[in-house]
Structures are given as C-alpha cells and as structure tokens.
Design a binder for these strands. Structure first.
Lengths: 199, 199
DNA sequence: CCGTATTCTTGGATGCCGTCTAACAATACA
DNA sequence: TGTATTGTTAGACGGCATCCAAGAATACGG
C-alpha cells in the first residue's frame, strides 16, 4: 500500500488508468469490438504493457472480485471436518464485504450496452463454479456425500454471485452488497449441512 | 437420420472420425497441447474442414451434451407460471436420459491425463449456468423472487451436472446416469419451489 | 557527477483460435 | 454431357496471449 520511491523506471500507467480506458471503450463500442490494442492506445501505452497490469482482457472486469474469491478459496480450504454452516457463511460474507463499485459492477449493470450478456454468463459461471467447488469440498470433509455436497456448494456460491449481480443491477450505489448476500445465505441456512450422510 | 444418396461431393470425414482423432491426441498430449491442426492431420483432412463439423475445439467434447441442454432450455422456457417442481425435474431428467459414453464422458474420466481440470471447471460452469438460468426463470414465472430463484436454479443444474461427472468418473460404463440424476433431484425435491414469495 | 543495479516499457516475433472467401473437386440427375 | 449441389481446401485475416531482447528512466553509492 506504500508508495516509497523505489529504484527503476517509474510506471507509465496503472491498473486504474487502463481499466478506465477499457470501460469507456466497452460502453462505446462493446466488449468484443474493443481490442486490447484499442485499450492501450486510449491509455497512451503500448499493447505489451497491458499484460504487465492485467493477465487478460476479461481480467480488467474480474480481477477485483477474483482476488476476494481467492482469499475465500484459501479460507475454505483450511476448514476442518467440524466446520459448520456458519463458518462457511462467514467466509462467503467476506467475499463481498465492502465491495465497492468497480469495472465488474459497471459491466453487470451495463451488460447489454457492452454486448456482454453471453460472456458474463460464462465468466460468472466460472467464478461460481470455483466457489461452489471449494464449499463442496469443505462439505465433503464434514462428511457429506459428493453430490449433495456439490449441490450445497452451488447453492452457496449462487447466493453470493446472484446477490452481487442484483446489487450491481440496482445501481451498485447505496453501500455494498453485504446485506443482500447475508439475506441470501439466510435462505439456505437450513439446508442439511450435516444431515446428508455419506454413502 | 437417413443416408439417402444426395447430390454433391461426399464427405471426406465425420464428426465421429474427428472426435476419435481428437480424443486420442488429448489423451496422448493433453488438451491444450493439441491444436486443431493436429486433430485434422491425424484425421487426414485439412484444418479448414474441422470447422465444418465442430464449431470449436471444445465443441468436440461438449456438442453431445449441449444439444440435450438446448432441448431442455427450450422446454424450460415454455413452462407456464403454474409449473411445479415435477415439471422441471422431468425436463432435467431428459437431459441425461440414455446418455451414452462419449467424448465428454471420456474427458471427465481422464481429466487429469488430458490436463483438463481447469478447463472442465470453466466449461461445466458455463453449462450449469445456462441450465440454472433457465430453471431460475421458470421459478420466477412461478412467483419466486430473484435470488431464491437463482439458488433454486443452481441447485437443480448442479444436480444434473455433478451427477453426470460422478457417473463419468465411475467409468460411465453401466448404463446411463439416469438413476444418479433422479436421486440427486430427489434431494432437492423439497426445496421451496412455491414457498418463497416475491419481494 | 558517474557508473550500476533495478524496474519498467516497447516492438517484434510467435502460436493458436475462429472466421471468411474464393477456387476447386466430386457427386446426382436430367 | 452439362448443371446444380455439396464438400474440401488453401490462404488470408484479426484477435488473444506469451515471450524475449533492447532500451529508457529511475535511485543510490561512490
């Protein structure tokens, strides 16, 4: 978080600058019609530089949430066999805790303008699958059979991601999506976390 | 389904031939390391021809299931507001009804050998998301609020796809995954299909 | 003030995917 | 024999993502 002067050439751009340029273009021309070269041109750097800041074009949209999801995956992976629903819910709440409007929220809100509906289904599905997998594995360690665990995981992951989508569509303005996710997780709080035995 | 002699040049290959060549190479070298050119070379046709048979490399694996999913999406879209859980379950059962071992089953079973674990999570997530969306929309039409509907949809879609995965991992030998999916759908039969009111 | 290590930028080359087109080959049929 | 139809093919294209080597801009120690 520091900004200590370090040796070496100073950066010619930043994630924020590039993301801003990218989002502008996505809104103007659509996501598919905007190439990485377009983005860097508007940002005033070379195409090569883009990949010093983002690992892919879609990373512009998803890096913020992905970082949070990665944290959650780590936390879920370290849950022991006596974990309960509340432990999982706590971890999942952290994913969106204080989540502020960012390129992803913008994209979710303006999906049609950006021509992103198909792409967003796929990308959201991937994140949901990742989270679902981690929750399912925690459930398995708690003694739940494979398929029920997968369903439980999907329900939890969907609670998070669909809440995020709804929050973004509503304008992503008032605060963060914490409350929505909390309510959504409450809906599935009574699912049989420890009831569906193995075999 | 006929094979009537039609005018025009006869085909030089077939989906089956190409899929076979592709699967061999996926097993030998891995999915990523196998290019479309590799596949067509082994199959003895030109690279251009590949796209006469499949729309993409991953389509080799997924076209079989995707066709079934498309049918289900159509059926789900035509459900009226008085649809119940059984109607949805019936449609979802059709997705896997008599599903036979195919490239996808092979890939699910040999995911690690093909270096496909990451790719499969993404691709499965996409199919799951599609199905979940359609179920969720049906639920919304039945009066369920948005987020509960999304969760319900995810649970149903995951019941289908995780059953398919388990079936494939077990060898995809004995019969089709019908029974597994039936059981999985039974697990969520009691979810509040008509209980969670709007607002 | 000068060299050096460090950090970053840049252009270019590369391989792949997926799209498209125009030319060509092989068939049925009248 | 010719014509319509259907497939195949080579090639070009644009895009993404990776890699590398050269160079530019800085801090710092002497």
């Amino acid at each position: 978080m520091k900004n200590e002067p370090r040796p070496g050439r100073p950066r010619a751009s930043s994630r924020e600058t590039l993301a801003e340029a990218a989002c502008e273009l996505f809104l103007e021309q659509g996501y598919d019609a905007t190439s990485v070269a377009d983005i860097t041109q508007r940002a005033g750097v070379s195409r090569s530089s883009f990949f010093n800041y983002f690992s892919s074009k879609s990373d512009v949209l998803w890096s913020g949430l992905d970082a949070r999801i990665d944290d959650a995956l780590g936390a879920l992976a370290s849950l022991g066999p006596d974990a309960d629903a509340d432990a999982v819910h706590g971890i999942l709440l952290e994913v969106v805790r204080g989540f502020a409007p960012d390129p992803l929220a913008l994209a979710l809100r303006n999906a049609t303008a950006m021509g992103l509906e198909e792409e967003l289904i796929a990308d959201t599905g991937l994140r949901s699958a990742r989270l679902a997998d981690a929750v399912a594995q925690a459930a398995r360690r708690a003694g739940i059979a494979e398929i029920p665990a997968a369903i439980l995981g999907a329900a939890h992951a969907t609670a998070v991601l669909s809440s995020l989508r709804v929050w973004a569509e509503q304008g992503a303005g008032r605060g963060s999506p914490d409350a929505l996710v909390r309510d959504a997780l409450g809906l599935i709080h009574d699912l049989p976390w420890r009831g569906t035995r193995m075999r």
